[in-house]
Design a protein around this nucleic acid. Structure first.
Lengths: 220, 220
DNA sequence: GCTGCCATCGCATAAATGTGTGAAAATCAA
DNA sequence: TTGATTTTCACACATTTATGCGATGGCAGC
């Protein structure tokens, strides 16, 4: 990880409706060598204008603001300036906000209890390609990846052979192909598929595949 | 976020093959109030025994160790003691390792350049439900979410009506149902589907659906 | 006006699929 | 050993799909 703080000062734009907090952070950013505070505003209603005027490297964006919320502002920023790094700040760490922010391209996510010094560090972090996150937020993000302890209702429902056949279907194979692949007769394939349909409560290839996918069956 | 450090001391198990590093971290963990170092080992070859003996709350796990690697040890730990929190440590931050670790249930991921004080902090973090991550690692995780700026090649390929029909197929409908749904004749549905197949270069319902999904067609 | 594309419909035929009924061999737990 | 399950196969028949070869009308662009 190469530090690029010496390159040119990092331009920061701050959106935070709480006046004390805004001025506090603003002061700190101001006072930090290598950072330049391009602006500090209590709302994002003039977002586009300010973006075009300042061309910030990093935006510190509060989620809860009067008028347009930070979550609404985020996609606008990222669509206009994809390379601008955005750090979200909020008091709440509910899943909904986090994932909406992450999907919209947020590069960092800090809770409001983050000490000011770490906020400054976070600015450098995102600028250098990192993603500073409050650890409780990080946990929620990770949990999305954790192999959802797959509740495979089908696991015990379908026999090994039936699973083979189903996998064949999910690859788009015809009965004939599956039969060839597994070296069994077409009629056998029929039988298995019939049983699979019974167990999955469906009555067509399509339904079986869709159900199998929704049920979290493929690894793809 | 409730701190639970006063509850009972957090039992930590440390796996790290580098002796200096191991002893350094071990000393620090020892000396930290609220933490108890249950053991510090240079390899995971006796993993199960040590786990059963110490029942740790948190495991600090180096990835690169002689014999069994940390990545191999992780799923074993999580399957035996799902509630034990594991922090991975490594010098490398390549995507492969990170995602394998995350999928296997790692709760934290620190690079080796992490200052010792932060390692201690990380132990408390995971114990309290957080997921301390080096910010460069966090970035890679986030990027996985931001992935799908899906290119819809079919968007312009298929006409509006053809897309309607395809959506019908993807809901598992039969021709008859689609015809009813859209108030057109079955033969019309046939024609559209024929054209869709031509354009998607497939020749069965199943293939069309699978292709449509892979192409990022569904929102599900 | 002509041309290309789209949406609509019809008919015909071959192939694939869904479903009913049966049954033999292999495997496995009680 | 006995019984339950699994895996294998067969034949039959209805339905659904896939595909070929049409046709009509609408609408946009040149």
């Amino acid at each position: 990880m190469k530090e690029k703080t010496a390159d040119h000062p990092v331009k920061v734009l701050l959106y935070e409706d709480n006046r004390d907090l805004r001025e506090g952070i603003a002061f700190l950013l101001q006072a930090t060598p290598g950072l330049v505070l391009a602006g500090a505003y209590p709302h994002v209603n003039n977002l586009k204008t300010e973006l075009h005027a300042h061309m910030p490297d990093v935006v510190l964006l509060d989620i809860n603001m009067p008028g347009m919320s930070g979550l609404e502002a985020l996609p606008i920023i990222k669509s206009l300036y994809p390379r601008t790094q955005v750090i979200m700040q909020t008091v709440f760490d509910d899943d909904e906000r986090i994932f909406q922010a992450v999907r919209s391209g947020a590069s960092g996510y800090l809770l409001k209890n983050t000490p000011p010094a770490e906020i400054v560090q976070a600015v450098f972090d995102v600028y250098n390609g990192g993603s500073p996150m409050t650890s409780s937020v990080a946990r929620k993000v990770l949990q999305y990846f954790q192999q959802p302890p797959k509740s495979h209702p089908a696991e015990h429902l379908l026999s090994a052979r039936e699973q083979d056949i189903l996998k064949g279907l999910m690859k788009g194979y015809s009965y004939k192909l599956i039969a060839g692949e597994l070296n069994i007769s077409i009629d056998t394939v029929r039988t298995h598929i019939r049983n699979v349909y019974d167990k999955l409560q469906v009555n067509s290839k399509t339904e079986a595949i869709l159900k199998a996918m929704k049920e979290g069956w493929i690894e793809d």
